[in-house]
Amino acid sequence: MEPVTQSLLYLDNISVVFDGFRALNKLSLTIEEAEMRAIIGPNGAGKTTMMDVITGKTRPTAGEAMFAGIHDLTTMDEADIAQLGIGRKFQTPTVFDMHTVEDNLLLAVKSDRRAFANITWRRTAHERARIDELLERIRLKDQRHRQAAELSHGQKQWLEIGMLLAQEPRLLLVDEPAAGMTDQETADTAELLRDIAKTRSVVVVEHDMQFVRDLGVKVTVLHEGSVLAEGSLDQVSANERVIEVYLGR
């Protein structure tokens, strides 16, 4: 099949209407391979609904959503979209508290999960190397044998990001990763996401403007379900409409 677009993610005129309320209003957005984009906007701007559409949780009322130029996301369910390589991290970390950090990652590693394969499963050298690489990347190498319940909030966030990376996504959707973190954890998380974006695409929804500045990426501002402005953080911060929306002036 000939790709419709060269962009990894292509949203065109996406609208979502809930009982007369227009959560998304002709939203258009493209994300390229190995690009990180920050999405900001006031509450109710449509940020979560946009991610729901991308992951198949919500069907758009109108519009087109393509992944890798050939996959129509509007016709697929959540499991099939995840298999394509779209991973989503929600604001509250979801990890297996009673398992070790290493076992959390092992449970998430992309491998054959059929019943017979599980019965005969042995950890391979490749999986061991993959776990070591992930632990190094998410800054939890020294915590590998600790139970996830013992980690700090920020470390749990990193562990969940690692669990998503274990599934080898091409696109990672991350919702407010800096919420509840210490200043050091916030800085480390920005560095982690910048590192991830060298090899895969990352969309970060965030309210913390200092964190967005640390990411140093293109920013898309949503308002009432549409794109209000795009550019660097300095550019959108100087936009009169953005100032009006955020400050009510």
Results as ranks from 00 to 15, higher is better:
residue 81 I to G: 02
residue 210 Q to V: 11
residue 205 V to A: 05
residue 94 T to P: 05
residue 119 I to E: 06
residue 14 I to R: 10
residue 229 A to K: 09
residue 87 G to T: 04
residue 193 L to G: 05
residue 175 D to V: 03
residue 244 E to D: 13
residue 104 N to L: 02
residue 114 R to D: 13
residue 17 V to Y: 03
residue 78 E to Q: 14
residue 146 R to I: 08
residue 81 I to H: 05
residue 122 R to C: 12
residue 39 I to M: 13
residue 185 E to S: 01
residue 39 I to F: 06
residue 133 E to F: 06
residue 168 E to M: 05
residue 108 A to D: 07
residue 99 H to A: 14
residue 168 E to F: 01
residue 128 R to H: 12
residue 233 L to Q: 05
residue 185 E to R: 00
residue 64 E to I: 10
residue 43 N to M: 08
residue 151 L to I: 05
residue 186 T to A: 11
residue 165 L to G: 03
residue 31 I to H: 09
residue 73 L to F: 00
residue 149 A to Y: 10
residue 135 L to G: 00
residue 151 L to P: 03
residue 190 A to S: 11
residue 1 M to C: 07
residue 149 A to L: 11
residue 112 D to R: 01
residue 101 V to E: 06
residue 145 H to T: 15
residue 233 L to G: 05
residue 48 T to Q: 01
residue 6 Q to E: 15
residue 234 D to F: 09
residue 36 M to T: 14
residue 74 T to H: 00
residue 154 G to M: 02
residue 195 D to W: 05
residue 74 T to F: 00
residue 138 I to K: 01
residue 80 D to L: 11
residue 37 R to E: 12
residue 129 A to L: 11
residue 228 L to S: 04
residue 127 E to M: 13
residue 34 A to C: 13
residue 47 K to I: 10
residue 205 V to L: 08
residue 101 V to Y: 06
residue 3 P to L: 07
residue 171 L to Q: 04
residue 10 Y to L: 12
residue 28 S to D: 12
residue 233 L to A: 04
residue 247 L to S: 08
residue 139 R to I: 06
residue 117 A to K: 07
residue 99 H to Y: 14
residue 107 L to N: 09
residue 94 T to E: 14
residue 223 H to S: 13
residue 52 D to N: 15
residue 101 V to R: 03
residue 90 F to P: 06
residue 56 G to A: 09
residue 37 R to L: 15
residue 31 I to F: 08
residue 80 D to R: 13
residue 121 W to L: 09
residue 170 R to A: 13
residue 12 D to R: 15
residue 128 R to E: 14
residue 216 G to A: 03
residue 113 R to A: 02
residue 112 D to Q: 02
residue 52 D to H: 15
residue 155 Q to E: 14
residue 148 A to G: 08
residue 113 R to E: 03
residue 66 M to T: 01
residue 125 A to T: 13
residue 136 E to Y: 06
residue 43 N to Y: 03
residue 72 D to A: 01
residue 160 E to T: 02
residue 149 A to H: 11
residue 150 E to F: 10
residue 144 R to E: 14
residue 189 T to L: 01
residue 154 G to K: 00
residue 164 L to T: 07
residue 144 R to W: 09
residue 117 A to R: 10
residue 30 T to S: 14
residue 147 Q to G: 12
residue 245 V to E: 10
residue 235 Q to G: 09
residue 78 E to D: 11
residue 94 T to S: 14
residue 56 G to K: 03
residue 235 Q to W: 00
residue 184 Q to S: 12
